[in-house]
Amino acid sequence: MENRITKLFNIKYPIIQGGMVWCSGWRLASAVSNNGGLGLLGAGSMHPEVLVEHIRKMKEATDKPWGINVPLLYPEIDRLMNIIIQEGVKIVFTSAGSPKKWTPLLKSHGITVVHVISSTLFAKKCEEAGVDAVVAEGFEAGGHNGREETTTLTLIPNVVESCSLPVIAAGGISSGKSVAAAMTLGAEGVQIGTRFAVAAESSAHPTFKQRVFDTEEGGTMLALKKLAPTRLIKNDFFNQVKALEDAGAEAAQLTELLGKGRAKKGIFEGDMTEGELEIGQIASMLHKEETVAEIMEDIIADFNKTTSKLGDLKL
């Protein structure tokens, strides 16, 4: 397949791996890139020196295109951006903030910039800021989420119609069927998080992966809405958050409960009780660990089978 997304990144398949905290290290990202997609390092959970280490290992592990996801609210954002420029990174996905400040600087160094959005309003602002593409993420997605709670099925066609940028669909996408659905709605690529988060090459803790496989339909919910809406697996920590929210707690109380390192505790260290277990709604569709190669092969075969069937459909 060739379209604006595959040309923009020079990749074989318009499949991007989400740059997820505590999951998206160099092993996962390089495996996705080596299998024809676009792998992303998740800088949001890396200290600057750790990011440098992962960047250099990426350069050794793959000669294919790859990039970095950078949450713009990162406390050492200046250092991260300097590292990205100095290390010659070619692709940056930004999220959790306005793209206006950093996009001109990144592009002045020849870096392709993509920003993650959750509404048509932000899609238009991205176009004004000069980004090269947008990731339109519906609220089915895991982790930090849009306040609008717009589903992917609704968000994608609205964003496609509202701006001229290439659109990458995200949120609830894990199979070839869902890739085909996103492209039917006008997306030219997809970003997949949850399925790659539990891949063999993911740096997530084995206990966390198994908890994802055990998650049933309805097992995730949005929480922490007064801070930053976040989709979590229901566990003891989630129940504490929900009790506070149901009691009308203010942001300060939620911040105190959240503390520091909750996501690391759950995803990376395997604490299923007190950890923040960020994952998407499609967790209930996943039941076993697969390698990235197996995931990519399955998605591509399912996509081709699905689109072949669609060709025979008529109203």
Rank of each mutant, 00 (worst) to 15 (best):
26 W>H: 11
131 V>H: 15
126 C>I: 06
23 C>M: 05
69 N>C: 14
146 G>C: 04
188 E>R: 11
184 T>D: 08
197 A>W: 00
61 A>T: 06
236 D>G: 08
118 S>M: 07
109 H>Q: 09
32 V>E: 03
25 G>V: 04
110 G>C: 06
32 V>D: 03
60 E>V: 15
4 R>P: 13
131 V>Y: 12
182 A>M: 11
204 A>D: 00
313 L>W: 09
157 P>C: 12
104 P>E: 10
68 I>N: 11
295 I>A: 00
19 G>L: 07
163 C>L: 14
94 T>P: 13
106 L>Q: 02
237 F>S: 03
41 L>T: 05
56 R>K: 14
23 C>P: 03
288 K>I: 00
290 E>M: 08
263 A>I: 10
118 S>K: 01
165 L>K: 07
313 L>K: 12
169 A>H: 02
123 A>M: 02
251 A>L: 06
3 N>D: 05
128 E>V: 14
13 Y>K: 15
3 N>T: 08
300 I>Q: 01
271 D>E: 05
91 I>A: 07
181 A>D: 03
239 N>D: 13
146 G>T: 15
136 A>L: 06
49 E>H: 09
107 K>A: 14
205 H>V: 05
110 G>K: 04
247 A>H: 06
138 G>Y: 10
268 F>T: 00
74 Y>G: 02
255 T>A: 04
171 G>M: 05
33 S>R: 04
304 N>H: 12
171 G>W: 01
196 F>A: 00
295 I>E: 00
34 N>F: 09
264 K>A: 12
293 A>S: 15
189 G>I: 14
29 A>G: 12
279 I>D: 02
263 A>Q: 04
115 H>R: 08
107 K>R: 12
109 H>D: 02
237 F>P: 01
23 C>G: 11
35 N>S: 03
118 S>L: 03
288 K>R: 07
247 A>K: 11
78 D>M: 10
34 N>H: 05
208 F>I: 00
299 I>Q: 13
88 G>S: 01
299 I>K: 06
215 T>M: 00
212 V>N: 02
22 W>E: 09
214 D>W: 10
34 N>G: 10
128 E>C: 13
80 L>Y: 09
31 A>P: 04
202 S>Y: 00
127 E>R: 11
209 K>S: 05
181 A>K: 06
91 I>T: 08
277 L>F: 09
128 E>T: 14
143 G>P: 07
302 D>Q: 06
210 Q>H: 04
197 A>H: 01
164 S>M: 03
27 R>H: 12
